[in-house]
Amino acid sequence: MEFEATRDAYGKALVELGRINPNIVVLDADTSQSTRTNWFAKEFPDRFFNFGVAEANMTGYAAGFSLCGKIPFVSSFAVFGSIRNFEVIRTSICWAYLNVKIVVTHAGISVGEDGASHQSIEDISAMRSLPNMTVIVPADSRETKKAVFACIEHNGPVYIRLGRAKFPVLPEASFKIGKANVLKEGKDISIIACGLMVFEALKASEFLEKQGISCMVINMSTIKPIDEEIIISCAKETKGIITCEEHSIIGGLGSAVSEVIAEKCPAKIKRIGIKDVFGTSGKPDELLRKFEIDSNSIYNAGLEILNDRL
């Protein structure tokens, strides 16, 4: 199996985009080594701007750039690039409907050893609540590249959430903003996942299938606008839905899916995510296990749904 960090794919995609599109500018707040925007900076020093440790100001500059026809990519760690500067994103960018791309890395608890201060588990919730914002959580490096290219075709604010760790690379698939991908058809249980959790979902589906349970696995990489159609068909055609995300169970993918089924097609649902607590230091795989968001936890949730133990 091949592994690649989504942030590495971002760094490469930016350089490619920079060569094609002279309007692209990249902004970072003293995290460019880690977000990989330094690769763009190296090739295009005149279109790269480092603001130091000042995320709110950086976000405001992006608004100004966009108002003058540039396409700014704004990067930092997920915590500092989405929530620290939340209200600037809200007012200066989203309200004004500006063409700004916010691409953050180090999201979720797979950040690992840095611990809770650096583990963003609230950002999907926050970004999803903003009018005009599009929210994308790519599952792997291939999808990251496609999402980064797709986001400049979309006129308006976009939030792309990436990780620090190396993610398994999944089979080639198409990408369209707002369209989920069915990775596996099945009739008993639907597993809807995003980001790193797509791989965990696939693993869990194999365990479940060994027990004779057939699983539909869906990569819901666009959290907003969410693909309602596919959620409704999951609700209708399988016995229950499991959502999986490296994020709080409050406000993220699990909430988005729950909102759709509650209104359109009530069904059993089980949310796999961080259960309203902060993260902690540890290795990524240890943390997935500790916080019960690993493939084993998804497997158990599958059994619970079928045994009606909800």
Partner: peptide, 15 residues
């Protein structure tokens, strides 16, 4: 927030 936006516009103008 306005000064940051204004700065971004000024910088874009320079570029």
């Amino acid at each position: 927030q306005g000064l940051s936006c204004a700065c971004g516009m000024a910088l874009a103008g320079k570029i």
